[in-house]
Write a protein that binds this DNA or RNA. Structure first.
Lengths: 228, 228
DNA sequence: TATAACTTGCTGGACAACAAGCAAGTCACA
DNA sequence: TGTGACTTGCTTGTTGTCCAGCAAGTTATA
């Protein structure tokens, strides 16, 4: 019965706890992002991960804990991306506006390449950030990015409020088209996945932010490019 | 038993179908926006509306139909708001940039005053716009607004692509803080509901859009302000 | 006006579907 | 042989949907 019943015993039938754990996290991330927490059952996660109904529960205890593990892994990735972006900006000797242009473009691309992260955070925000609140290092990525921008672009301390708003706008502009493809973009007869649209959009977003920052960067007395 | 059991018989115990229907729609809108479709039961809706568990089903048949009725009512309101905004812009004799500034500010305020609509559409987008797709007049509001902008701001037809992107950016910038209050904004140590923040934000958003549109409005040969 | 026949708004019980969590079982591998 | 990696069966709770019934009107008829 065991041999005949299972249609796809697949090669990774070998037992491998870390591998299964990863597979479950991957599957859960995909499903939670696509359907949301409530609409995703542990059965679904198991099927998507190629394990049985009960395995997600075996590894993560409760559904909420699996969800939090997914969130945590996602946020870790973002944090790391922000840090490496910051390193790159720090190492650059370009003028502030060029650095900003590069940073915004990079962020735009990062978001585009990680739509599941966006959808996950979006759902989390809509649900009031309940799960997120009980996670240790959740919002520091944004803070770090902000500090990097303020420092690297040599913005006058009095302009930090404006820097925060620019940061918010960068997020808003880079996220929107990832989420609203099926509704708003279609409504405006735009194809959210076409390379042409995305190239247009990228240029537009970078331009908007850079224009918005103009006359506000490089206002500090010290010369930029030589930190410390 | 009938007299003693009911703790709050309330004055509107009179039977009134339209009133009950509205109450159910209101309750469902609130709950769907706050918790999402899956996390809201018809029991919840009934309780929130002050009717019994079975009444939402009695009026709307199935849960999905109630949800679509909520969406439809919401979209109707938006459509109407867009139209009246357009009328106002048409009637104005100000220069294009002033009209644009007013329109963006009005949109910002409208979104702020209708967070449930935003959350509802946001969830709908995350779910792939499934329900929305089967509704008749769903995306025309955006189209109408776009046409209004292009026409009123006397944008050269070749700049229509750019106008579309500006429109998208206006939406993105006006929506973001409504959704991401509990997560991103808190992460940046901003208070999403404080009047100070909102006033800052409003000015910032309007400025960004107007700056982005500069050198692009009023490029058509005809003089603006005298349509037809 | 009185009363019976009928409609309509609304309720709450029944039921099937399904999901989460637990526990006992099975199987691979050291 | 034992331990850990899974699976499967079961319990319990929740939810959507259907439906029978009741009460507040409304209309017809005498």
């Amino acid at each position: 019965m065991t041999a005949a019943a299972n249609p796809a015993p697949r090669a990774d039938r070998e037992r491998n706890a870390p591998r299964s754990r990863e597979a479950i996290l991957d599957a859960a991330e995909r499903l939670f992002a696509a359907r949301g927490y409530e609409a995703t059952s542990l059965s679904d996660v198991g099927a998507e991960a190629g394990v049985s109904r009960g395995t997600p529960g075996y590894f993560f205890g409760a559904k909420a804990q699996l969800y939090r593990a997914v969130l945590e892994r996602c946020l870790g990735r973002v944090r790391q991306a922000v840090r490496s972006g910051r390193e790159r900006a720090l190492a650059s000797r370009e003028p502030p506006e060029v650095v900003l242009r590069g940073a915004v473009g990079e962020y735009f691309d990062f978001i585009l390449a990680n739509p599941d992260f966006v959808r996950l955070l979006e759902r989390e925000a809509l649900d009031g950030g309940r799960h997120l609140a009980s996670l240790p290092p959740h919002l520091e990525a944004a803070q770090e990015a902000l500090e990097a921008i303020v420092a690297e672009l040599a913005i006058d301390p009095s302009g930090e409020t404006e820097a925060r708003h620019l940061m918010l706008s960068m997020l808003a502009l880079s996220w929107f088209h990832v989420v609203h493809g099926p509704t708003v973009l279609r409504g405006l007869a735009l194809e959210p996945d076409s390379p042409v649209f995305l190239e247009e959009r990228r240029r537009h977003v970078v331009d908007l932010i850079v224009r918005g920052a103009r006359d506000r960067v490089g206002t500090r007395p010290e010369a930029p490019g030589a930190p410390g």
